[in-house]
Design a protein around this nucleic acid. Structure first.
Lengths: 146, 146
DNA sequence: AATCTTCTTGCAATACGTTTGCATGTGGGC
DNA sequence: GCCCACATGCAAACGTATTGCAAGAAGATT
């Protein structure tokens, strides 16, 4: 029996192989960490979280890019000029884009998976500009900072 | 008669003085440029646009921060990890926050001044997290890139 | 199991926007 | 016109993003 730390190792391997990526140490570690923290994480946060594994920061950076290219993670920018990456769910529910909320006071990032957004433009003012919306970002004050 | 380039100099002076800021060359130039380009501009764009005046880049940068602090411009981040600044209107119409739209292909930024956004959460899933929304950013494909 | 090709890693260096320290210069109230 | 707080110019520090290159490892093939 594998230790609990590696519970999802097979699943991670399948994920990577299925995406056409080699199954390497840093890549598995990054994916496993994402599975324990299901919110957008920055490159720096990943490096710090995996510091004990002593992976090179550039390696983790390139892995994030690769995982994004393979569609396993998505990249978001919540406005602090730092890229963040988020594990994409396999089910269509979590895979569909959901709005993100950023607290401008504490910086906490929340995935509003259940929230739908409806746009009500003045006639013609929206459709002449926007063809398709793929990402929605809300900023404000969160409840804990209220 | 002042040349057309300085048409709004008096108005700009009033703006600055009214905000408690000194009326200096770089500050006037930045504000005047904003009045000709009513969309979010990056620090780099400002520096380039005013290159012939040979202002120091740090001066322009600090002026943007000052203008933001005085409430004359607002700072937005459209997801390319570059701060952009936008002239805030004096009338309540344009001063109230409006959504921004960013085309992920051509990078064009559009102010959706007329668009209202309505959030329809699953019961309780939004109000437990969000206290107040102050900024809304939409990303996607614009009509010209369609 | 040895081999081989291709992809990945580690290390270093670069790029670029943001931000600050400090001495000098100046706006504008007096 | 004087004076002082504020603004500027110059340079440098900083943090994240990004890339080059040689060495190393994954995994298909035999």
């Amino acid at each position: 029996m594998a230790p609990s730390k590696f519970t999802s190792l097979d699943a991670v391997r399948d994920l990577l192989r299925g995406a056409g990526l080699r199954c390497t140490g840093p890549r598995v570690a990054v994916l496993q960490h994402f599975q324990t923290r299901r919110r957008p994480l920055s490159h720096g946060e990943l490096v710090e979280a995996l510091a004990d594994r002593e992976f090179d920061a550039a390696t983790i950076y390139r892995n994030l890019i690769d995982l994004e290219g393979a569609g396993l993670v998505s990249r978001v920018n919540v406005g602090d000029n730092v890229w963040r990456f988020e594990l994409r769910g396999q089910d269509t529910e979590t895979q569909s884009e959901h709005p993100h909320f950023v607290c401008i006071e504490c910086g906490e990032i929340t995935c509003l998976a259940q929230v739908r957004v409806k746009l009500t433009p003045a006639p013609g003012s929206l459709k002449s500009v926007v063809n398709h919306v793929s990402e929605i970002l809300l900023k404000g004050q969160c409840m804990r900072c209220a």
